[in-house]
Write a protein that binds this DNA or RNA. Sequence first.
DNA 1: TCGAGTTAGTAAATCGTTACACCACTTCCG
DNA 2: CGGAAGTGGTGTAACGATTTACTAACTCGA
Lengths: 364, 364
Amino acid sequence: MAKVTIQQVAKAAGVSASTVSNVLNGRSDRMVQATRERIDKAIAELGYRPNRAARQLRNGRTQTIGLVVPSVGNPFWGAFAREIELAAVAAGSSVLLCNSERDPDRERRYVEELWEDGVRGIILCTSLASLDYISNVIDEGLQLVTFDRPAQPGDPESVVSVSIDNHVGGYLAASHLLELGHTQIAFVSGSIQSVNRAARYRGFCSAIEEAGLDVSDMPMWTGFETLPFGDVEAAEVGRKAAHDLFTGDAARPTAVVAINDMTALGFCRGLRDLGLKVGEDVSIIGFDDIVLADLYDPPLTSIRQPIKRMATLAMEEAVSQDGGAGSEVGRSVLLRPQLVVRESTRPPKARNEHEVANAVEGAR
Amino acid sequence: MAKVTIQQVAKAAGVSASTVSNVLNGRSDRMVQATRERIDKAIAELGYRPNRAARQLRNGRTQTIGLVVPSVGNPFWGAFAREIELAAVAAGSSVLLCNSERDPDRERRYVEELWEDGVRGIILCTSLASLDYISNVIDEGLQLVTFDRPAQPGDPESVVSVSIDNHVGGYLAASHLLELGHTQIAFVSGSIQSVNRAARYRGFCSAIEEAGLDVSDMPMWTGFETLPFGDVEAAEVGRKAAHDLFTGDAARPTAVVAINDMTALGFCRGLRDLGLKVGEDVSIIGFDDIVLADLYDPPLTSIRQPIKRMATLAMEEAVSQDGGAGSEVGRSVLLRPQLVVRESTRPPKARNEHEVANAVEGAR
DNA sequence: TCGAGTTAGTAAATCGTTACACCACTTCCG
DNA sequence: CGGAAGTGGTGTAACGATTTACTAACTCGA
């Protein structure tokens, strides 16, 4: 099992290292079949595996791809990371994992380091509108795939993006609630800075306006503007939102669109703190459709992201040869999200404001 | 930004590449301070970063560590992977992510590939009792840290393990339920094959017997013996268990110890299918204390694993120099788990069997 | 039979870093 | 004052794979 080199294979097959290298790199048309077979046999018998470091030193790049997610601790990103890794194995690649914790500076450092370390491509899950902060490495030829962030007008040409249509998602969520008869629908999110969040909100607004209602009448909650959030924090945002929306003096929503499932789950927890029942007292719809959505009590209505499909697409682009700055024009793939109705959304209960107020009083 | 080499730094500093290399590798005692400062300055000005591939080719190993988890899609492993990556960054390392999907063959292939690709160490989250299947690479000097799998008698000496004391965990879980007054306590798990599962079960049994009860009276559910499980499957196990335990003719438990939180959550979902209330009708305690446990309705009582601490420890061992076969004797760190009481466990309800039976009938 | 073209393969340079042997010069001590 | 030891470096040969240029040995047509 001591490491076997291309030289040893060459000797065993009675050829030069160059010829073995040719086999390794798919240029076996340059030799007679008998030679090729001898080499194949030698490789198999010696259990030869080319040394990655040597290859990279020579060629500049590896088969590794970098995956930068906000935090794998968040079940959505965990599930995505899993699909990416599975797709990577299928493509003969490895995955270097990075948690940006939604810190733009960390993101930048990761991207630069990954690039300098010779990754083949990077799948960057970012919410930042501009890619200027990493334009230097993109210009140098980095094959960048952004995920959960559709292509933006100012993006470098070579950048590929894979995302769902967040506008449609937001629209679907609001429409569902409107159809159930809700007219007081809150939008709950930690921060509206990111492009996908903004798109979800616009979709939400479109549906509201189409229904002849006024968006400005809807309660909205976007606290914690500055707080970075991973897994715990996303839920904490929802929990805080529930407390704020249902203990203040403002009009209370009968339904809520949460920016993602973790926030929705946190919101549910917040309602529980106040003695309110999800589905019965307040309808809630999440976003992402993580595994936990179906497990929750009541099971959470959500907007599903086709995560496996997206991971496969992102991976394909990340390892595609014809990428890099200046070659082909970047693509932007926008997948359609899907409404998954469960039990956290129901028609509004015929009730007066007092009931809720009393329940809240009782819980305090 | 074009790549700058050690040669360029050497020229800029007016020394040889060897001397720069000495600085890079902490041997700056071999030169006068003025030289050292010139080199430092040149490095900073040129923005030099040593080429990883070249280093690895020369030295044989990288700063990268391999992380093999069953599936990052499972929130527990996702949370763990996050902590590992955070610790890795702090230690100047990168993390190569691998999902074994609990497939021993995948595990082996990953470990071998990671080793051949020159990782510095591997953190292997496995449930296999024997490490024979990878003993070849361990003998070659691999710094292996097993997680969630305490050291076993036959393990190679160099192997380090970081885990909680699963026996204590199982004991804590059962004791809690016994103290609440439960006497019919089920143990629910997908498969009892793994060492930590077996330990949890033994702890469970100890507590039962100490209370003067007979373990053989307790219902136990360990279906899906052969099913590999990731995130979805673990929950599915719990759900199936709930159906089996509460629709059959056998005596029904008033409380349940689940092998982990995902299974517990699945069990809760199963109870809901049957119209039973968690906490009220049946008490449930999970294991791991994932973020979702606190978010659930009702919040799930669980046995907490000190995940951050464990990740830090595992990382320290994975990058420790003094490891490898034949050097120091392997360590085995066993941390104490902690009972976190929430609302899914309560004293058993005074009720007759009919109530439950009727509720179940109604749900079908 | 000559020479151009093809076939099948090789030798050598190279990628960036590091370890080892070595060297010139100074200092110190008996 | 001779030589051993110490100081502050440098030159060179790897590490393992790839690529470019090159060369024998054939083939084939005129």
